[in-house]
Computed example of a mutant assay.
Amino acid sequence: MGVVSRDQFQGTKKTPASQDPQQDSLTHVELMYHATPLSMESADRVSFSVSQAPEEVTISRGGNVTFYCIFPIFKEQSWVRILWWKHGENEYLRSSADRRKRFGQEGKVSGFFQLLGATLGDAGIYHCSVIRHGLLGRNGTGSHLIVHVAPTPLKLVSKTSEWDSSVPLILVCETAAFSPENFTLTWYKNGVKAASGIITRTVQNSEGLYEVCSSLSEMRPVLSDASYTCSVSHVSLKTPAIATLNTSDSKQDYVGMSRYYSGFRYTVGGLAFLLLLIIAGARYKSR
């Protein structure tokens, strides 16, 4: 049997049996139970409401979440079903199509929808629909799912400038791929916020995630005990992520690099001088 769309429950007429998703055991695994009576007036005269909980939830990619659909207990004996759908889509959710989705009953007046291993594509607003006698009764208020990917771990490295000898040191801070895009990246030198020499670039990769690369150019002579920190704040993090580099830890790298470039200059100079001697000798012999 084909997939049943939400449009089939939008009218006031009873859904034909051939189109009733309840008849398709492979299409839906929803909540269905025999409602118990209310002590008040007939449910047909009551304008009941359907609520959902939580209204909004934020989880990290790969996490699990459960939504609840809450509705009243009806006086008359009636069959009630709960269907779930995602805002912007025309089909009800099906566990047969995605095994990460589970549906069931939680008590007498609520149904649940559990999503396992959330992906970025799962983010959105989810609604439940209460179906009575094959008719759409009410839609739930909606539950907003936000899926985050943290920008950690951070990578902080140092290097010398290849194009500007007046810049003794350049530090580069790179984030891991993350989502959503909004973030704050701050540089500190010896605990004091840096305000100049900073270049930050953001790119979006093929997965739709964001990656940030930020550089700090140190214009002053590098001290042997200086400390540089890259701090990143993001909605997925309870506290900012930080990466710290101490120049004392990499002093040998600076010294070794300096010796390399000095030795290279001396070697080139020596070869040039030797070449001049050979040319001068050749000219002298030709006379």
Rank of each mutant, 00 (worst) to 15 (best):
V149R: 08
D98I: 00
A150E: 11
F103G: 12
V222F: 02
H133A: 15
D164S: 12
T12A: 14
S250C: 13
G111Q: 07
H87I: 03
T27D: 00
H133N: 13
L171W: 03
R220T: 15
G197P: 06
S47W: 05
H148A: 00
L275E: 06
T244I: 06
C213R: 12
M257R: 13
M32P: 01
N205I: 11
T175W: 02
M219V: 14
E106V: 09
Y92V: 12
E56T: 12
E211D: 11
P21T: 06
A282N: 10
N246F: 02
S39G: 04
K108A: 13
F273R: 06
F103L: 07
S39T: 07
S217M: 05
V255Q: 13
L209F: 04
T119C: 07
G88D: 07
S262E: 05
Y260N: 07
R61V: 13
F183S: 11
I70K: 05
E30T: 02
V203F: 04
E162Q: 09
A272Q: 09
S233Y: 02
F103R: 05
L120S: 05
G117I: 06
S248T: 05
A176E: 11
S206E: 14
S236E: 04
R220A: 15
S217W: 04
Q23T: 05
C173G: 12
V255H: 06
N246M: 05
R6S: 14
W79V: 11
I82N: 03
D164P: 07
S166P: 01
T229G: 03
P54Y: 05
L277I: 11
L209M: 14
P16Q: 02
G107Y: 03
C173M: 03
T200H: 01
C128G: 04
Q23V: 01
K238H: 08
L216P: 05
H34E: 09
I70V: 14
P16D: 09
T152K: 01
T247C: 03
Y210V: 09
N139E: 00
D225Q: 07
E174T: 15
S39A: 10
Y126C: 06
R100A: 10
I278A: 12
T152P: 01
K155C: 12
G63I: 04
I82D: 01
S18M: 09
